[in-house]
Nucleic acid binder design. Structure first.
Lengths: 247, 247
DNA sequence: CGTTTGGTTGAAATGTGTCAAACTTTGTGG
DNA sequence: CCACAAAGTTTGACACATTTCAACCAAACG
């Protein structure tokens, strides 16, 4: 259950959780010309309405995808971690219909669309891997839709804690009982369609039930099986290659 | 505002709303070996957990994608109409994480994965078109997530009416003020995360506000602009090629 | 024409939101 | 390293949108 080799590139480590790459494919990915940038917390990386000519990969830190309407209501659609490419879709959809912002200081790598399109042409399997990545993102949106539409406040938060636990473990960033989750209660509220106040109360309930705590940006899960059950959590939708759910 | 040529194949008509096809591409699509089936209403076409070896296109009728958990809660994730391919993703995700069921009697066309993969290899642009179709599906999930997470009951239903109006117009199945929408109030409830009772009351409110009616499986929209505003509706997320929103 | 399915309405219960205040932690400039 | 400000968390009282339960009605259908 130890972390994978630290020297592995985040993009490859992530992609390997959902797709079997061979050596030449890994090399091709490493050759992608990538412009590195360091961003502060609470900054937009891309915005709804943008027409990007490049995609980005999150190398370090946390970001979230979100939508906001004129009245200022915000729905967070997903959290992104090391290796994720939250706007991969801009390859085929000219105009972004959501924004991506940092939650923490982030290191990101920008890759021109053209470079990705060339790579897709030369390495059709990598093209499939990228397609697959966007499909799994869509599966996560579906699960979140279910989460917000059908589950109680208690289960919603439990479910989110489970998802991030599994995803963090998959890329070697979580221990058995603990992982970093640097979100405020307000952000959790925007992710679950609740108010900050109610998130606060629900976190207390989860804590008192002995299922999970969120403190100082760290989630601790004393009882994984119970949390999974409380959150009505089934890994299937993450479509991990090795069904890498830790015990 | 008349319907497009009736002899156009539904798949092509749909794809043309989001992607510019040339004649050879249209022909390649028409050559796809497709097994036609007629299904009754309220039947599952594919089920969560299935590992399909083929995709299907909806040729006539309505279907919906949905998820259901052990307690019997159901979330409808989207409605599909003529030309849609609601399980296209099974091309790259072995196991389905949701189900698709008919709402009305349907005519569907099954296409083996292999045939689609061959087509993708020979016609990379069609491959991109399919990818794009799955990305637009994902955009719709995002918008629904926002809908359920952030909008009032009133706005949720207004928004759904707007989305289907635009999509139906895009494939030539809607007139200016009217289109078929053969859903029960219970199904609308499962799509919006509300109860049947509350859907009923909200439909009354929409009717009394003069924004829209749903009666006998037909939506009538006396005042499009007001409905759009009430539903906080912006077309962008549908990523239509020609921004084909009717006045 | 009776049976089923879907729609409508009322009254009461409740989960979640709203408002407001106090408290705690984190970050920062002096 | 302190002191202050800013950001985030916690709690209470109350309001309200939505659910629940239950009954009745209307339309569809074999």
């Amino acid at each position: 259950m130890a972390a994978t080799h630290p020297e592995i590139h985040p993009i490859i480590r992530k992609l390997e959780t959902i797709f079997k790459l061979d050596e030449s494919e890994r090399e091709a990915l490493l050759r992608l010309p990538m412009q590195i940038a360091d961003l502060r917390a609470d900054q937009d990386i891309v915005r709804e309405g943008d027409r990007p000519t490049r995609c980005f990969a999150l190398l370090e830190g946390w970001s979230c995808s979100y939508k906001m309407n004129a009245e200022g209501n915000r729905q967070i659609m997903g959290f992104s971690i090391s290796g994720d490419m939250p706007d991969l879709q801009s390859l085929h959809l000219r105009e972004l219909d959501y924004s991506v912002g940092t939650l923490t200081p982030c290191k990101v790598g920008f890759v021109e669309h053209q470079a990705l399109l060339d790579l897709c042409k030369n390495q059709p399997r990598i093209c499939n891997a990228f397609w697959r990545e966007t499909l799994i993102e869509a599966a996560i949106f579906r699960e979140w839709l279910f989460n917000v539409g059908q589950r109680s406040a208690f289960a919603r938060i439990a479910h989110i804690f489970c998802e991030l636990a599994v995803r963090m473990r998959a890329v070697g960033l979580a221990t058995d009982r603990t992982y970093d989750f640097p979100v405020t209660q307000a952000e959790l509220a925007d992710a679950t369609g609740m108010t900050t106040v109610h998130v606060n109360r629900t976190l207390r309930d989860l804590r008192e039930a002995g299922l999970a705590t969120l403190k100082g940006g760290v989630v601790t899960i004393p009882d994984w099986e119970s949390l999974k059950q409380a959150g009505d959590f089934e890994v299937r939708y993450l479509h991990l290659k090795g069904r890498a759910e830790a015990a």
